[in-house]
């Protein structure tokens, strides 16, 4: 084993790695039981540090959390508990569009979206999420960020667009009701401006889904709002603080239907 790779276990355990390092280390974890055990132990050790920084949240947060969970459906338990099932490792990455959209139980509990989705392929390049790692030991939320969970969702749909010579995409998981914007090299917005994301919601029109962090680099950002209900998404250039409604023509449009 490359000792450099192994040395990353500590930094990985405390989220002190970039997304890229995280993905590459997770590939290593799939084949290294020692590192898996070490990460779990080091996470537990790091968690102990939180004992020293306790701070009760404001009382209002409790009600806010409890009313939010009352309206939030829980995920179904994982059907397989074997942590090292090799077939699970490829289920998410090798599935064709058809299998990704129709065979997964998460997807079938939702409205089928394959047909309208394919219809949109003429307007936008639509690709299956084929390159993401679906690490079998690592499919729990403890190891995945919210955006990774969408990117790796079994029903993830990816709609790509070119933008200024680079590639931008929205990956949407209807089952999770979430969508993530990803860009390899997001162009920086002009001074005083920001790129703003919008979801097209039936009956409501374009609703702000948040700002894209200014960058000349890779960007991964979760869209606010109900991505399951959305029929599309768009990006406009807005004043840096964002706008209530789009004030300029879209620089990119993504059709989900």
């Amino acid at each position: 084993m490359n000792p450099d790779t192994h040395a990353l276990a500590g930094a990985y355990a405390v989220n002190a790695v970039t997304d890229e390092e995280s993905r590459s280390f997770e590939a290593h974890l799939e084949v290294c039981a020692d590192c898996r055990a070490e990460v779990t132990e080091l996470r537990a050790a790091a968690a102990a540090l939180a004992a020293d920084v306790e701070l009760p949240p404001p009382p209002a947060l409790r009600n806010s959390v409890l009313s939010a969970i009352a309206q939030t459906r829980q995920l179904p338990p994982l059907p397989v508990t074997e942590p090292a099932d090799p077939t699970a490792a490829t289920a998410g990455s090798t599935g064709s569009r058809a299998t990704a959209g129709t065979t997964d139980d998460l997807a079938t509990r939702r409205r089928p979206r394959l047909r309208p989705w394919l219809a949109a392929a003429a307007a936008a390049a639509v690709l299956a999420v084929g390159t993401l790692i679906w690490s079998p030991w690592n499919d729990g939320p403890a190891q995945l960020t919210a955006t990774e969970q969408v990117l790796q969702a079994p029903d993830a749909q990816r709609v790509e667009q070119p933008m200024n010579g680079s590639e931008i995409a929205i990956v949407r998981s209807p089952a999770r009701g979430q969508a993530v914007f990803v860009a390899d090299a997001m162009p920086a917005a002009p001074a005083g401006k920001a790129y703003q994301l919008w979801l097209d919601l039936p009956g409501r029109g374009l609703v702000s889904a948040g700002l894209i962090p200014a960058s000349g680099a890779a960007v991964t950002v979760m869209l606010d709002g109900d991505a399951a209900a959305a029929t599309g998404a768009g990006i406009t250039l807005e004043p840096a603080a964002g706008s209530e409604a789009p004030t300029s023509d879209p620089v990119a449009l993504f059709s989900f239907t």
Partner: peptide
Amino acid sequence: TQEAYLDIWRHCTRFDPSRG
């Protein structure tokens, strides 16, 4: 913090004690 608790609520169905 609220987001974290919402995530915990959604995912506690998948909590695996063997992972900590």
